[in-house]
Write a protein that binds this DNA or RNA. Structure first.
Length: 552
RNA sequence: UGGGGCGUAGCCAAGCGGUAAGGCACGGGACUUUGACUCCCGCAUGCGUAGGUUCGAAUCCUGCCGCCCCAGCCA
């Protein structure tokens, strides 16, 4: 894979220490998504961490679906998650489902009951909440807490047999209702849920809770380092309790790190879903979405995402990474991988008045001067051309190197032209520029008699191929992601701009997902959803950096 | 005002008692047939804050301040 410049982080330090002290003999990690949504860049951080950590020390990483809640999960997500992890470039060792372990979990729950460490509770959900107490007040014990082992055993079995309705009973751990850690106040281990499971069908009507299931899953798989996000820190005592009381042979250790936040976007499933449902975006794979599928359609590469994930580091500090760091890595990755071609997004016609009407030249131009092995393509030149409106100003400010009346610019890989006349319509809009070219200045002839400050891109009008260009801006306006319910107010209404322009003829056979650097404009990818045989649609992956700041 | 965490530059982040890495961003310059790329240079007398220990503290101790998480039969 690509060069890994694994930087130090506290989890890696722990692993190194555990190996050194022989606490563990090998490193086993896992990526444990719940199949209830699409993966996003935040998941990528966890994926890269888990897979590369194990990989660095010759260990293993499992992909395990944490499917303990049939009401929220769906098999549709399983495929998309597998696809995304694979696309990111990782091969899992084992592919598992928490639901594969349901029988084992049930047996461990029975063990807990026999040890008098768990009991069946008849309190309603509301009552359980009331009995739990508050952050500052201890809870009180359930009246069902002291049922006999025999009665608990029988009740739990009847729960499994389906003799009770949803919510009628739960299995709870018997820990400490006065614990300052809310998670230890007799947490629910199993709930009744008469729902069909994507994997186990109707075999079960009781399902284990995360806090009970997760440590057992890890232990069964021999996971040594169970890496999760910060909000589970409070759950660690319970995680350890389950491992110990269920008498698991393997004792994984849970380590928490801060999840990724990015500026100008949102990462929560809920908010992402809101964007989709409200129609602000075109679906989970809209190129503006921070989902893996969105980034893929946008044109990001797995390499760029991986490098980004390494660079941001792993720590416990809540942080929000500047989205421009992600942009940095896609530019860096694409610079020597993409052919460089020309397209005009906002066309304005240029007529070369001293160029014969029936004449036409074909220039053979390198696809990428920095990667000559990409070869050359023919670029036709003729009397009428298109250039970008941004490259002409009738009344330019100082330091404007582009075209204006009386000024000369070089047409990239062609001639130097001079603007002589500006044609306007009735309303005063510039509709055409009349220029003359200097035949002596043709590219490749070694002409050095005079230099011009500006070089602009162009397309021969006669040969131009119409295309649609989609330019993107951040989904969320500048100020930090608010917590408000109406975060939709922060959505950038101008996050997509659609332009009808022209591209050079060499691009006419481009296929979906082909990438280009459109010279002076940015990196683009052929959209795989809206491109048809008739028309190519290009998404701008990222603009080129620019130090040009002159305002019109 | 219970418990668990976290505070190093605009944004990430290394640092683990010996005198503040690196990246992004930003500013300046060189080069340039992409105002791109590349290359130089600059960018924390300072590590939330106040004390203390020490020859020496971002690192150790104490107090304070700020921010995040926890009261699902979600994960």
């Amino acid at each position: 894979m690509d060069n890994k410049n694994t930087s130090s982080n506290f989890i890696r330090d722990i692993v190194i220490e555990d190996l050194k002290s022989s606490k563990v003999k090998e490193v086993v990690t896992r990526f444990p998504p719940e199949p209830n949504g699409y993966l996003h860049i935040g998941h990528a951080k966890a994926i890269v961490l888990n897979f590369e950590l194990a990989d660095e020390f010759g260990g293993r990483t499992n992909l395990r679906f944490d499917d303990t809640n049939p009401t929220k999960e769906d098999t549709e997500y399983i495929e998309s998650i597998k696809e995304d992890v694979a696309w990111l470039g990782f091969k899992w060792d084992g592919l598992y489902f928490a639901s594969d372990y349901f029988e084992e979990m049930y047996n461990r729950a029975v063990l807990l009951i026999k040890k008098n460490k768990a009991y069946v509770c008849d309190l309603s959900p509301e009552e359980i909440r009331e009995y739990r107490g508050t952050l500052t007040q201890p809870g009180k014990e359930s009246p069902y807490r002291n049922r006999s082992v025999e009665e608990n055993l029988e009740l739990f079995e009847r729960m499994r047999r389906g003799e009770f309705k949803d919510g009628e009973k739960v299995l709870r751990a018997k820990i400490d209702m006065a614990s300052p850690n809310m998670n230890m106040r007799d947490p629910v281990l199993y709930r009744i849920c008469h729902a069909s499971h994507h994997n186990t069908g109707d075999k079960w009507c009781i399902y284990p809770m995360y806090d009970f299931a997760h440590p057992i899953e890890d232990a069964i798989e021999g996971v040594t380092h169970s890496i999760c996000t910060l909000e589970f820190e409070d759950h660690r005592p319970l995680y350890d309790w389950v491992i110990k009381e269920c008498e698991m042979e393997c004792q994984p250790q849970q380590i928490e790190f801060a999840r990724l936040n990015l500026t100008n976007t949102v990462m929560s499933k809920r908010k992402l879903k809101q964007l989709v449902d409200a129609g602000f975006v075109d679906g989970w794979d809209d190129p503006r979405m921070p989902t893996i599928s969105g980034l893929r359609r946008r044109g990001y590469t797995p390499e760029a995402i991986r490098k980004f994930c390494r660079e941001i580091g792993v720590a416990k500090t809540n942080s929000t990474v500047d989205h421009r760091l992600l942009e940095h890595f896609i530019r860096e990755d694409l610079i020597d991988k993409t052919p460089r071609t020309m397209a005009v997004l906002r066309p304005i016609k240029v007529v070369i008045t001293n160029y014969p009407e029936d004449k036409e030249e074909i220039f053979e131009v390198d696809y990428n001067l920095d990667a000559p092995e990409m070869g050359k393509r023919p670029v036709p030149f003729s009397r009428e051309l298109y250039i970008d409106r941004d490259d002409f100003m009738e009344n330019p400010p100082k330091k404007y190197f582009r075209l204006y009346p009386g000024n000369e610019v070089r047409l990239k890989d062609a001639y130097i032209i001079k603007c002589n006349e500006v044609i306007k319509d009735d309303k005063g809009n510039v509709v055409e520029l009349r220029c003359t070219y200097d035949p002596e200045t043709r590219s490749g002839t070694g002409f050095t008699k005079r230099r011009v400050k500006g070089t602009i891109h162009w397309v021969s009008a006669r040969h131009a191929v119409p295309a649609e260009f989609r330019l993107y801006e951040p989904l969320i306006n500048d100020d930090a992601e608010g917590d408000s319910e109406n975060f939709l107010e922060q959505v950038n209404p101008n996050s997509m701009e659609v332009l009808q322009g022209f591209m050079e003829p060499s691009m006419k056979d481009a296929r979906p997902m082909d990438r280009f650097q459109l010279i002076r404009i940015g990196y683009f990818i052929v959209d795989n959803k809206y491109t048809t045989d008739e028309k190519i649609v290009l998404n701008r992956i990222v603009a080129l950096r620019s130090s040009f700041k002159v305002k019109k």
